[in-house]
């Protein structure tokens, strides 16, 4: 009896240690939905939820890649600029008469290529990823404006707008986010490659002595991140009927914040992609619910900032309690 209780307790506390942040986020999302739907009944209307989640799913998909990178102890501040560049490539190919599948594949391939290059510089030249991607951000941003000249891309062919489509009543971006979250969660917790990512970030020396090629591991992590940036771009570029030559300001910081609030430690070695996807959904829900309960749009960012800060402090408190 006693023994079983202890076992249960042990299981429970291990569950808390491993998935504490994910549980906090899930609880926050549920509480938020309950409270806001009491204030304004239209909030839970199916269409509204679909719009919130679908419009932000591309951030979640990019955050999956970012989480993989951060778990290996690296970071990418150029992700916003890269999404802008890839979206332009995607749209330009579509309007120049290439088949739609080419327009959709190109951002994934270019994303992998650009980030593999960054990964090679990081791994083999030993320059910290924050610095290399800072430089890359500047290059991509400048490249984007000088190529597009600030013009918007319009008149994409029929069938291009993947993100506007429904599948069994759910918008495609949300489905994509759920699919990739579950897929990557499975891969990262159950495959040798997935576990090696945690090892590289958690204790590089131990990872090296246990036979992991650190440099190759980092390059591959960057390449996989590049693939997710490409996938994110497809959702971003096909959600509206125009492709602007700009991305939302501070997009890279939004993506990094989603990963970090999702429980991915910036020191590397811990966290899951479920956390980062939940964080993306929470942010989207907070933003929308503030509008539904009638808060002035100008105060949105300040309130988001306070909430991010509270989540971070709560997470620090939880981690300290679990450790001691």
């Amino acid at each position: 009896m006693n023994n079983q209780y202890e076992n249960n307790n042990k299981f429970f506390s291990r569950f808390l240690i491993n998935y504490g942040q994910e549980l906090v986020l899930l609880a926050s999302i549920i509480i938020l939905f309950v409270v806001v739907s009491q204030v304004n009944h239209r909030f839970l209307g199916g269409n509204n939820l679909n719009t919130i989640f679908a419009g932000n799913a591309y951030i979640g998909v990019a955050a999956i890649g970012m989480s993989i990178l951060i778990i290996t102890g690296n970071i990418d501040v150029s992700v916003g600029a890269l999404i802008g560049v890839l979206a332009t490539i995607c749209g330009t190919l579509a309007v120049s008469g290439y088949p739609i599948w080419v327009a959709w594949t190109a951002p994934i391939l270019v994303g992998i290529a650009v980030n593999s290059l960054v990964g090679i510089i990081v791994a083999y030249a030993g320059i910290p990823s924050i610095v290399v991607t800072l430089g890359m951000m500047s290059i991509l941003r400048g490249g984007l404006i000088s190529v597009t000249g600030g013009d918007w891309i319009t008149d994409m062919p029929e069938g291009f707008f993947l993100a506007q489509q429904d599948f069994m009543g759910i918008r495609v971006p949300l489905l994509a986010l759920i699919f990739f979250t579950i897929l990557m969660f499975y891969i990262m917790s159950n495959t040798t490659w997935g576990r090696s990512l945690y090892a590289i970030g958690g204790n590089p020396e131990a990872a090296r002595t246990s036979g992991i090629d650190l440099k190759k591991g980092v390059v591959i992590a960057f390449a996989v991140h590049g693939m997710f940036v490409g996938l994110s771009t497809i959702l971003f570029a096909t959600q509206l009927n125009i492709i602007q030559s700009t991305v939302p300001p501070n997009l890279e910081l939004t993506v990094i914040t989603a990963s970090v609030i999702g429980g991915v430690s910036i020191m590397g070695g811990t966290g899951t992609v479920i956390g980062s996807s939940l964080a993306t959904i929470l942010f989207a829900a907070i933003g929308s619910s503030l509008i539904f309960i009638g808060v002035s749009a100008y105060w949105l960012r300040a309130i988001m900032g306070i909430l991010i800060l509270c989540t971070v402090l709560a997470d620090m408190a939880r981690r300290r309690r679990v450790v001691t």
Binding site: N250, L253, I256, T257, V260, W299, L300, R301, A302, I303, M304, G305, I306, I308, L309, V312
Partner: peptide, 10 residues
Amino acid sequence: LATLALYRGL
């Protein structure tokens, strides 16, 4: 990162 959002929001 958090105060970046907070201060700009204020």
